[in-house]
Design a protein around this nucleic acid. Sequence first.
RNA 1: GCUCAAGUGGCGGAAUUGGUAGACGCGCUGGAUUCAAAAUCCAGUUCUUUCGGGAGUGUGGGUUCGAUUCCCACCUUGAGUACCA
Length: 1031
Amino acid sequence: MKYNFNDIEKKWQNYWSKHQTFKAENNSDKPKYYVLDMFPYPSGAGLHVGHPLGYIASDIYARYKRHKGFNVLHPQGYDSFGLPAEQYAIQTGQHPAITTETNIKTYRRQLDQIGFSFDWSREVRTSNPEYYKWTQWIFIQLFESYYCKDSNQARPISELISVFEAEGNSRINAACDDDVAPFSAEDWKAMSSEQQQETLLKYRLTYLAETEVNWCPALGTVLANDEIVNGVSERGGHPVVRKKMTQWSMRISAYAERLLQGLETIDWTDSLKESQRNWIGKSVGASVTFNVMSSEMLKQVQHDESERHSEIDSESHHTIEVFTTRPDTIFGVSFMTLAPEHDLVLEITTAEQKAEVEAYIEATAKRSERDRMADVKTISGAFTGAYAEHPFTKEPIPIWIGDYVLAGYGTGAVMSVPCGDQRDYDFAKHFNIPIPNIFEGVDISEEAFADKDNTIIANSDFLNGMNYKKATKRAIYELEQIGQGQGKTNYRLRDAVFSRQRYWGEPFPVYYVNGMPQMIDVKHLPLTLPEVEKYLPTEEGEPPLGRADVWAWDAKQNKVVSNAMLKQVQHDESERHSALDAESHKDNSVYPLELNTMPGWAGSSWYFLRYMEEAAQRGEAFATEDALKYWQNVDLYIGGSEHATGHLLYARFWVKFLKDRGFVTVEEPFKKLINQGMILGTSAFVYSLMHSFTVKTISSNYGIDELKFPNVFIPKASYDSFNKGEFDTSLKLGLDIIKKEFERKGFEVEVNWDKVSLNPIHTDVSFVNASDELDIEAFKNWRPEFKDAEFVLEEGVYKVGREVEKMSKSKYNVVNPDQICEQYGADSLRLYEMFLGPLEQAKPWNTAGITGVHGFLKKLWKLYVDDNGLKVNDAEATKDNLKTLHKTIKKVEEDIENFSFNTSVSTFMIAVNELTDQKCTSKAILEPLLILISPYAPHIAEELWERLGHSASISTAAFPVFEAKHLVESSKNYPISFNGKMRFTLELPLDMSKEDIEKAVMAHEKTIAQLEGRTPKRVIVVPGKIVNIVG
RNA sequence: GCUCAAGUGGCGGAAUUGGUAGACGCGCUGGAUUCAAAAUCCAGUUCUUUCGGGAGUGUGGGUUCGAUUCCCACCUUGAGUACCA
């Protein structure tokens, strides 16, 4: 009987679906285990073989855990809000919901055919209103919370209001905007409702703020930094400008320290933790306040040093705050540098320097961020003419501006210590500013000395003779004494902008009364997306929701109403001089709704919690307390490393917040995380020959414009030699073809070798066979412009060039899993994806190699079934059989625990090869073997399991137990090495003593031959391992 | 520049605490079977060699009886980050 994988796989996929084999229960005596994949965005292109890699790995692990007796939750869903569907809607007018639905169908079909053990009953879709109702709910919880730095957690905003009412904000230690002014209880009560709301907004964990964004006028939207390439939008190449906009932000910065500390408690790769650490960017140091000297003070210093304290002009008193990680070097400050955008620059600049400073500011403003970054080497700056006073020496310090200081980091100002910082050093050298040396025995004539761990401070008053640690402590203490500084920790992590000017995202549950945001009551959620006639921004530059006709909130009836109602109210309001009584007015409760939508990461920041809840219970909460308590967090999370600083950081932030407010019980969502490596495509290239001929005679039949340049392709070898400056025969043949084509049309042309150019062009990999030969007919039919293409052949064929690149539609190198499943089966695909190499590593796909694992499955089949049917019998297992089985159990178990799936596929091959050689038919061996293989190749395992007489799915069978006794050996084939190099092996009993081993080895003829009469200096015998003879 | 990975046959890769380098598979070569092909099976396949052997895991050093594995320096590739004070 043949291994008919197509029928078998269909049969078992139907069986699993019908019997809900992989449905997880929310209560069970078994221990829980939660295996999660990063859910996909359902793109129109469908899956290529790179996508399922992580899913296959997690599926193997999930199935393994079931065999090991765990209650496994292994769900799947769709991150179904997103830009491509919206882009498609803009182009075609098709509603993104329809596009998304269609794409999901394709995804589901493709996923099903690979045989995953997903519990589809718990599927989530972020664009489903029943789902985003709870995304909106979380947003409201964030709005209703502030971050208390004393208890280090988020707390209800109502608590804050009580404190404000009782005593103002003087004793509140909370994360808030920098510009919150102190106020008393009386001040608070005196505020208008709007003023109070405005104040509270500065404390809320999600808040409205003016943020500078990358605005793309052509697309009508804000772009993230990585959506901008070379100063223009990645999509479409439109110009991008910096613009201030009022947008929702998330106060993730409040959680910076906890996000950093939490990394210590989770099992993620070092590189991933490292990128989160870099992103959070903690630096410990001090903030130091420098007083700007007035011109009078300055004169005093210059004229009479002894009386410099006598007079202080308080009128024009400015201070500059800086952040430094090196307060120990404070006596090395010889100038200060402000970012050109710093608020104080224009105020402190002297009349003489005004022109220069303004010119410099203008010049830097013109340069885009990209230019500034690309051009790190050029040093530029301008002197403001102003001086600051050194906090200890009271010496004047010149204040400069320079674009190497970034407005967005720290305070946008630095105390420049040229002897200890290379950038300060370069700046000082460039502008001839003194570079005082404050390090003992260090030469700073060539470069700055930045090594803080090997330094003794000198020329620094009370810091002399101290090391970095001591000096830092002392400097901070002294600064505190004079009230000009304190220890400070700075984080790079910025608050996250949460508004997008797009249609296909979650609407904010927000309406505006007198410009102040109001939350829609939770019981009226979800607030669903309105219909719009076009998915583009409005002519006025409003987001697409600005086009909706029914997008106003009736706060009395608590429902969305037509904008017409709104206009009436506004109209009336503008005429309120007529002393209209507001209460008598029926429609005064209609307000505008928020026009922005939430970003892609909103829905993905909590979806793993939604899976915990069974579908039937999903109405009442984002997940019930019982479900959250039972599943806790994700035990194993598999996904791409591209989410290192986005999704993975935001999800941790939201979970920490939900924990603070008592909605979940865990601090970290993902206990263990693995990044699967990318599967790369093998692109195929043809080499197009171009030549600008000098035309000598123009044909009378054709105008020069009508003459199409013929497409001629030459072999890879010609391309390679061309790049070395050579012209081979094939290339000359190619030129001849072009020339003849011209001549046929009556043009006389002259070959010019300097004008030959060759272009590699991607061709679809499906036109290429295993020997790299191009199907020329298929290529010609591919695109109209190649219809008349000419190929210069080698030995009758055209061989393409190959290059390994990211698998992508635009590179025509995608391999579709559908065809693989059709031709070799899902089990082959699963095994092969695992066999390619380590899970976390990037590796090239090569379909030809799949015959190896496919052959293995056929061999496995033949071990159980032949032409007469089932071969397996009750024959007693031989010693060899048991040895093979148990070493396989041991290895496979270790491999799965270590996520080394590639090596276990090899182990299966070895086991099947050995058992085939042993002609094993024993059920006692072949039955447990099937369980070992079933996580990897579940379909064939189920089929053979059934044929062995089982009625229940193999997925419930217990994992075989390893017994060491079957691997006990009595002898060892010792490698005998000379000076560490193995020369021959010698079979010796394992219980032989060291001395006897040495004797046996020394007496061996090959040892004697190897030594050639020399006496060895030493003989190392490691019993059970190796013998090494040193001579 | 900094941070993190990684460099092993023609290719993907294996060698789990330092102990037989190249498991397993692809590809390739030869053979069997076949009218032929596919499929299947058997043998070989790091390089080199005077067939005794010799060399060999990016390069150069070091530690060790012994290094793909540990240490130092360098080179290359990939990923992330970017003037972070």
